[in-house]
Design a protein around this nucleic acid. Structure first.
Lengths: 196, 196
DNA sequence: GTATTTCGATACAAGATAGTTTCGTAAAAA
DNA sequence: TTTTTACGAAACTATCTTGTATCGAAATAC
C-alpha cells in the first residue's frame, strides 16, 4: 500500500501545471488577498484550465493551504559568538517574511478565519513560526552557556514577545522610526529583563 | 457657516435609520467579516432600504469606517495605588476588545488592507489604541512617582510590547495556558526589565 | 494499437453582488 | 397648500463567481 504507485494507466498529472498553480496562488494571495482572488484568476495566471485545479482541490481553502505549505523556508541558525549579532540575523530574516505582501495577507487570513477555521493558523505556526522559535531557542541556549543571559529564561516566551512587537509595529507603525529601528529599541528593553 | 443648519427643506434624514445602519454594520462585521458582508445584508438587518445606505455612503469602506468610528469607548484610568492591580484592570479591558469577534475582524481588516488603504488602521489607532496608550502612560507615571519602576521607562514602548504579545497570543495560542495566564506571564518577564 | 486518464478550452447554469432607478408615501420648510 | 427631500420596497442591469460538463488532443500503461 505504501509503494510508489505510478502504475495507473492514462496520462499522468503534469507536475509543471501543479507547480504553476501553486505559484499563481501565492502570487495572487500576495497581490489581492484571499477573498478577492478567484479560482478563475488563478487558473488564468497559471496558464491552466479551471478543470485542472478542481481536479486537484475541492476549493480555495484547500488550494491556498497547500500552496502555503509548499513553501520551503530553511531556517539558518546564526552562530556569531555573540547573542546581539545572532539576534540581528534572526530579526532580519523574520522581517523579510512578515513585511512581505504574502506574509501580511497570510496573517490577515489567519486572523479573519480564526474563529471558524484554524487550519491556516496551524500551517503557519508549524511551517514558519515553530522552526524559527526553535532556532531562537538554540541561540538563547548558546547565550546562556556564555552567561550572557539568565539561565532560567523562557526562550519561547521571549520569542513570542519579540514576534508580537514585530507584528504590532507592522500593523500600526506607532512611531516615525523605521520598522527595524523600532523593533530593535523594543528588544533592547526586553533584554534588560533577560540579562539580570 | 458654522451654525447648525436644520433649515434645509424636505424631510430630514432619520437618526433612527442611521443608528440602525451603523449597528447592523458592526454586527455583521463581527459575524461574517468585512469581505463576506454585503450592503444588501446590512440594509436587511437594519430594516432599511438599500437606497438609504447609498444616500449616506459611497460604499462599504466608507460605511464600515464610519461605523467603527462611531463606537464610543471610554477608557477608565485605574488608580488602585499599586501598579500591579492597575495593569490588571487595563489588561482586562484590552482583552475584552481584542478577544471580541468585532475586534478580531477589525484587526484582520486592518492588516489585509494595510498595503492599499490605511484608513482603518488610522481610525483604530486613534479611537482605540491611542487613548489606552495614554491611560497606560498615566498609570506608569504614577508608578514612577511611587518608585515602582525605572523613571526613564518608555511607557509607549512598554504598551506596544504588551499589545503585541496580546495580539500574538490571540492569533497563535502558543501554549495550552489560557490567554490571560499567558499574557500575564509575559508581562511578568517584561516588568523585570522595568523595575531595575 | 487500445484503453484510460489528464490536458486546456469553452460553455453553461445558478447564484450573489453592486449600484441605479422608479414608485408611492411620509415628513419637514415656506 | 406647495415644494422639497427622505423614506422603504422593488425592479433592474451588469458583472463576477462557483462548480460542472463537454470537447478534441495529448500522454501513458498494457
Amino acid at each position: 500500500m505504501n509503494e510508489i504507485n505510478k502504475r495507473s494507466p492514462g496520462r499522468p498529472r503534469s507536475p509543471q501545471s501543479h507547480q504553476a498553480i501553486l505559484q499563481a496562488t501565492l502570487d495572487l494571495l500576495a497581490e489581492v488577498g484571499f477573498d478577492a482572488m478567484s479560482i478563475d484568476a488563478i487558473a488564468a495566471r497559471a496558464g491552466v484550465g479551471k478543470t485542472t485545479i478542481y481536479r486537484r482541490y475541492s476549493g480555495k481553502e484547500e488550494l491556498v493551504a497547500d500552496a502555503i505549505e509548499s513553501l520551503r523556508q530553511d531556517v539558518v541558525i546564526p552562530d556569531t559568538g555573540q547573542m546581539g549579532s545572532d539576534l540581528d540575523a534572526l530579526i532580519e530574516n523574520a522581517a523579510q517574511i512578515m513585511l512581505s505582501p504574502l506574509g501580511r495577507q497570510t496573517v490577515a487570513m489567519i486572523i479573519s478565519s480564526a474563529s471558524n477555521n484554524s487550519q491556516f493558523a496551524q500551517i503557519y505556526w508549524t511551517k514558519y513560526m515553530q522552526p524559527r522559535r526553535q532556532a531562537f531557542a538554540v541561540v538563547l541556549e548558546r547565550a546562556k552557556a556564555r552567561s550572557e543571559i539568565r539561565p532560567d529564561l523562557d526562550a519561547g516566551l521571549v520569542f513570542d514577545i519579540m514576534s508580537g512587537i514585530m507584528l504590532f509595529a507592522l500593523i500600526f507603525q506607532p512611531t516615525s522610526e523605521s520598522w527595524e529601528e523600532y523593533v530593535r529599541r523594543a528588544l533592547n528593553l526586553l533584554f534588560k529583563a533577560a540579562s539580570i
